[in-house]
Nucleic acid binder design. Sequence first.
DNA 1: AGCAATTGGTTGCTTCTACAAGTAAACGGA
DNA 2: TCCGTTTACTTGTAGAAGCAACCAATTGCT
Lengths: 160, 160
Amino acid sequence: MTETRWLTSDEREAWVRFAAVLELLPGVLDSQLQRDERLTHFDYFVLAMLSEAPDRTLRMTALATRTNATLPRLSRVVTRLEEQRLVARSPSADDRRATDASLTDAGWRKVVHAAPGHVANVRDSVIDALTPAQVVQLRSISDAVLGRLDPDGKLFASGS
Amino acid sequence: MTETRWLTSDEREAWVRFAAVLELLPGVLDSQLQRDERLTHFDYFVLAMLSEAPDRTLRMTALATRTNATLPRLSRVVTRLEEQRLVARSPSADDRRATDASLTDAGWRKVVHAAPGHVANVRDSVIDALTPAQVVQLRSISDAVLGRLDPDGKLFASGS
DNA sequence: AGCAATTGGTTGCTTCTACAAGTAAACGGA
DNA sequence: TCCGTTTACTTGTAGAAGCAACCAATTGCT
């Protein structure tokens, strides 16, 4: 164990505030969608990823990668969404181990209905609080951090 | 409902990446502490807040505010930490409804032991991925967002 | 003083997530 | 071709978080 490099005061101030955002923002995102659409943010994200995929269909593993979920987690979420008839499972044609998840018409309507409120919330909570320059900075910063968190860039098969 | 203001491409790129960070970072923070110290990040933060307080003691409500937790959540976490003898509860002197939470000596040693690894992880995952300029930008951005998430600034009684 | 409303905290219940184990299909040598 | 290994997914189980209901102490109004 080498000598600890403590944070400088600039670093500490940035980190403390960023950590607070990290703690608060997920709750804000979740509660708007929960209140207005009875969806968690993760549910919404799953539906949104499917809505952008060819045929509105993805294999479970691919969907798990895009949403950064573990497979067990995704499996349960898809089960729940399936019970609500927003998503349908079907065995994959080319690999009988695999399962495809597809957005149903009802699921598509749900995403379309939910998107405006969600976007408004994202604007309200984050984007509109920033200057255009800060938006660009946030992108670079997030890129840099993602480089550490997700070195293989698995999370970004598509631009989303 | 007025016309939806969709995100511009700059905004979308920033948001998608930031959302990914939001999804990944908590897990990274948690697992290092879990693995090395058997603490969640939230546990650690509770202990850290106590360690900085006068007499290493805070009222439950004050501690909940500083850690941005609901009181039910904090109550259970403190129960758990109490079982591990890291924290002790005592009835407050001036208000018999209130409860003070104090760091025990073992709790203090735990924080001191855990801090270097945690700081190293924060450096590794975030700070060292950024230029000094970006660290400053991150602070401003977080401040701006916090202004929306936490308009009353409850979260920042102390600088932490 | 006496009662209603508020504040401080804990607990019951339900939902969500993670980890680990289990099943089934597919691949890859000997 | 047969068997061991890997891949794809599901399920059992246990830990954590939120909401709402709850009790106890305090404050404020009359």
